[in-house]
Design a binder for these strands. Structure first.
Lengths: 94, 94
DNA sequence: TAGATAATTAGATGATAATCTAAATAAAAT
DNA sequence: ATTTTATTTAGATTATCATCTAATTATCTA
């Protein structure tokens, strides 16, 4: 299994516990940055940084809504990640 | 989903591309350190470091065989990791 | 027992990453 | 148009991590 840059970025994205927490929070539906921020202690700049890593890994999507940006899980890429993950251990797609 | 130290160590372990490659190599069966090393360019010390991270995350097991140490995938923990991974996205066990 | 081989551990270095504050951008409200 | 609110970007700092060489431990063999 030869790794792509995209796969690399996905593994890097889920390596951080805060980013995994963000993904978890987004399971329950889309949220604005401020709503996500309510779950964390760190600064808005730090959150923005984490969101950009998740976005580059295509694990989340953003859209504007007025001043806010609404983040959602990118379910198709999550599927893809699960596939890669299962391949890592040579198992079938769930 | 509240993360344990163990889960943290597993995600950290698979965050590195070289360690994922080691796991892949071990899918084909157990190998000595020298045999694993044949697949890589970095030093033995570096490999030893990566193996110790995989071992602490319990993704691999080691046993002695004379001077050699034989590494194997720890399949039950791999199963567990897959479960955690699916839970991260709220899906069923494959 | 001495020397060779296999692997790990110690300690150092350079690169990367998480975080912060301050500044910038963009939209909304007054 | 100015101010306020939401978010991102820039730049700096600190911590963590991958890697190296050298030293150590443990086993095997001559």
């Amino acid at each position: 299994m030869q790794e792509t840059q995209k796969q690399e970025s996905m593994f890097a994205a889920i390596a951080d516990v805060q980013r995994r927490k963000i993904l978890n929070i987004l399971k329950n539906g889309e949220l604005s940055v401020a709503e996500i921020k309510a779950h964390f202690d760190f600064s808005g700049a730090t959150l923005s940084h984490h969101l950009s890593i998740l976005k580059n890994a295509e694990l989340v999507r953003v859209r504007r809504q007025g001043q806010q940006r609404i983040y959602t899980l990118n379910l198709s890429v999550v599927e893809e990640l699960l596939l890669i993950f299962n391949q890592l251990f040579n198992r079938e797609k769930p």
